[in-house]
Nucleic acid binder design. Structure first.
Lengths: 150, 150
DNA sequence: ATAGAGTAATTGCACGAGCAACCACTTGGA
DNA sequence: TCCAAGTGGTTGCTCGTGCAATTACTCTAT
C-alpha cells in the first residue's frame, strides 16, 4: 500500500523508458521501411501463428488492441497487400487474417532493423542476468494486473 | 546487434507489462475520480513545479507530449477548472499553466488511489532491491534512446 | 425444431494526438 | 534602428483508437 520513493522512481523510469524506446523504434521502422510498429506487430503475430493466420479476436488480444482497432488495422494492411482476409469455414461469423507473401517479405525486410533497434536501445543497457530477471519480474507484474482486470 | 531469445522475451514482457498496468491504473482513476491519467500527470507536474506553474513547452516535454497536445490538454483542464492560464510577464509570447485550488484538491483526492494502484500492480511484484536496480537500468535505457533522438 | 442468449466481426461516432502552417513576439547582426 | 532568423504557443487537418450499437451467426435448453 505504502509506495516508497524508490518504487515511485522505478515506476517513473519505467514510463519514460517505455516512451523513449517505443518512439525511437517507431521512427527507425518508418524511416527505413515506411512501416508502423503496429503493422510490424501484426506481421510478427501472424507469421508466428499456425498457417500464418489468426482469428481477428485472437489477433486483437495478442496485439493488446480492441477488436474494432484490429478490424481497421487489418483493413489498412489488406489495402497495402500485406495481409488477406479469409472466411472461417467452420464458424461462418469468423474471419482469419492471413499474411500474404508480400507481408512475409516485408517482415523479412524489416525485422533486422527492428531487432537491431531493440538490441541497441533496450537490451544493450541490460547486464548479463538482467534480461532473464527483468522478464520474470515483469511477467509477474502483468499477471497481477491482468487478474485485476478479469 | 544480435538479439538473444532472453532479450527479446524481456522486451516483450516490458511491452505487455506496460500496457497491462497503464490500463488498470487508468481505469481505476477514471472509476474512482472521473479523471484521466493524462490529467493526473498534468496536476502532478504542476504541483511539483515552483509556484505550481510551468511554461507550456516545459509541461509538454515533461508529459512526453507534443506542444499542440499540451495546448489542448490544458484547454480541457481549464474548462474543468483544474488549471488556469497566465501570460508570462517577461516574454509576451509565453504562457504558464497554473494549478488552481480545485486542481490541488482533485490531486489530493486522486493520488491515494493512484499510489495504491502503482504499489499494488507494479511495485508489489518487485523484490527488495529490484526497485532501485530497475530504476537504474531503465534510466540507462532512456538516456541511450534519448541520445539517438537528439 | 426453435426461441433466446451469447459470440465474432464490423461500423458509426467522438475523441485525443501529432504534424505542419501560422501568428506573435524576441533576439542577434548589419 | 531595423531586418532576418528563431522561438513559444495555438489552430487546421488528418489519422488511429475505443465504445457502443449492429449484423450475422452459433449454441443451449426446452
Amino acid at each position: 500500500m505504502g509506495l516508497s520513493a524508490d518504487e515511485l522512481a522505478a515506476w517513473r523510469s519505467f514510463l519514460t523508458a517505455h516512451a523513449a524506446v517505443v518512439e525511437v523504434l517507431e521512427r527507425e521502422l518508418v524511416e527505413a521501411h515506411g512501416m508502423a510498429l503496429a503493422d510490424y506487430d501484426v506481421l510478427v503475430q501472424l507469421t508466428e501463428a499456425d498457417g500464418g493466420r489468426l482469428r481477428m479476436s485472437e489477433l486483437a488480444s495478442s496485439l493488446l488492441l480492441s477488436r474494432s482497432g484490429a478490424t481497421r488495422l487489418v483493413d489498412r494492411m489488406v489495402r497495402a497487400g500485406l495481409v488477406a482476409r479469409e472466411r472461417c469455414p467452420d464458424d461462418r461469423r469468423g474471419a482469419y487474417a492471413v499474411v500474404t507473401d508480400a507481408g512475409r517479405a516485408a517482415l523479412a525486410d524489416a525485422w533486422p532493423t527492428h531487432a537491431a533497434g531493440v538490441s541497441r536501445w533496450f537490451a544493450a543497457a541490460l547486464g548479463p542476468n538482467d534480461a532473464d530477471h527483468l522478464a520474470r519480474v515483469l511477467n509477474q507484474v502483468t499477471t497481477r494486473a491482468r487478474a485485476r482486470s478479469a
